[in-house]
Simulated scan of single mutants.
Amino acid sequence: MSEPAEHVRPSGDESLRLLCAVGRTLDQELDEALRGCGSDVDQWRVLGLLAARGGCTMSVVAEHALLLAPRATKLVDRMTAANLVHRRPDVVDRRRVLVVATERGRAALAEWDAAAAGVLDRYRHLLGSDAALFDDVLRRLQDATGRAGVPGLAGLATEG
């Protein structure tokens, strides 16, 4: 007798499910670690981008933080009120507004990066000698999907 249809799944489907499940778990663990420092994943992503790039438009911030524009705007508004970022005119194109990290934001980011590093260390430990290979596979997937995030940040995750 054959297996019920619900148990017969192509391995690709299972790989996609596992990738999504691990991503969701990682987001939850990262968010929990950052909340212990008074932050969340979205704020950490935004400040990390701004510290690396200096200043970015809202569209770049939204893309990098994986947020829709209205949610990114609300997040930046909250971060501005907390003096983590501020908006300023672009010196090249005065019509554009850039979001820039404040000194307080940079100080907070240092603490948040330490919390995030703890989560990353746990995953690197679980992967053991495969950690570098896994990083490479993730980068190739990201590049191949055309959703590599913000141009010019490739390799930033391994700097430090």
Score class of each variant (00 low, 15 high):
Val99Trp: 04
Asp130Arg: 15
Ala82Gln: 13
Arg124Gln: 07
Ala81Cys: 11
Val119Gly: 03
Trp112Gly: 03
Ala115Val: 00
Val97Pro: 02
Asp93Ile: 07
Gly118Cys: 02
Asp90Pro: 06
Val100Trp: 01
Thr102His: 09
His125Val: 13
Asp93Gly: 06
Pro89Trp: 09
Leu126His: 10
Val97Leu: 08
Val91Ile: 13
Asp121Tyr: 04
Asp113Cys: 13
Arg122Phe: 10
Leu127Ala: 15
Arg122Gln: 09
Leu120Ala: 12
Val99Pro: 01
Arg87Tyr: 08
Asp113Leu: 15
Arg87Phe: 05
Leu109His: 06
Val119Leu: 00
Val119Ala: 03
Asp121Ile: 01
Ala114Gln: 10
Ala101Thr: 02
Leu84Glu: 10
Leu126Ile: 12
Gly118Tyr: 02
Met79Ala: 05
Ala117His: 07
Ala101Asp: 05
Arg95Thr: 15
Val99Asp: 01
Arg124Glu: 09
Asn83Cys: 14
Leu127Arg: 05
Asp90Tyr: 05
Asp130Gln: 15
Arg124Leu: 09
Arg122Glu: 10
Arg106His: 13
Gly128Pro: 02
Val85Phe: 04
Arg94Ser: 12
Val119Ser: 02
Ala110Trp: 04
Pro89Tyr: 08
Ala107Asp: 14
Thr102Lys: 08
Arg104Trp: 10
Asn83Thr: 12
Ala82Tyr: 07
His86Cys: 12
Leu84Pro: 03
Leu98Gln: 07
Met79Tyr: 05
Arg87His: 09
Leu109Asn: 06
Val100Leu: 02
Ala114Asn: 07
Ala115Gln: 01
Ala107Trp: 12
Ala116Trp: 00
Leu127Ile: 07
Ala115Ser: 00
Glu111Val: 14
Val97Trp: 06
Trp112Asn: 07
Leu109Pro: 04
Val119Phe: 02
Arg96Gly: 02
Met79Val: 04
Ser129Phe: 02
Glu103Lys: 12
Val119Glu: 00
Leu84Asp: 06
Asp93His: 09
Ala115Asp: 00
Val97Asn: 04
Val91His: 10
Leu120Gln: 11
Arg95Asn: 15
Ala117Leu: 04
Arg124Gly: 00
Ala101Tyr: 02
Asp130Leu: 14
Gly118Lys: 01
Arg95Phe: 11
Val91Ser: 10
Leu120Gly: 08
Met79Lys: 04
His125Leu: 12
Leu127Pro: 01
Thr102Val: 08
Asp121Gln: 06
Leu109Cys: 09
Val99Lys: 00
Arg95His: 14
Arg104Gln: 14
Arg104Ser: 11
Ala108Phe: 09
Asn83Arg: 14
His86Asn: 10
Asp93Ala: 11
Thr80Leu: 06
Ala108Gln: 15
Trp112Ala: 06
Ala110Cys: 13
Gly128Asp: 04
Leu127Ser: 09
Ala81Gln: 15
Leu98Phe: 07
Arg122Asn: 07
Ala115Pro: 01
Thr102Asp: 08
Trp112Cys: 05
Ala114Val: 08
Ala114Tyr: 03
Val119Asp: 01
Arg87Thr: 11
Asp90Gly: 06
Arg96Asp: 01
Val92Lys: 13
Ala81Met: 11
His125Gln: 12
Gly105Ile: 05
His86Ala: 11
Thr80Val: 08
Arg94Met: 13
Leu84His: 12
Val119Thr: 02
Ala110Gln: 11
Val85Glu: 06
Ala82Pro: 07
Asn83Met: 13
Ala114His: 09
Arg87Gly: 12
Leu126Arg: 13
Val100Phe: 03
Thr80Glu: 14
Ala115Cys: 00
Trp112Ile: 03
His125Asp: 13
Leu98Ala: 05
Ala117Arg: 09
Val99Ala: 06
Ala114Pro: 03
Arg88Ser: 14
Val85Gly: 09
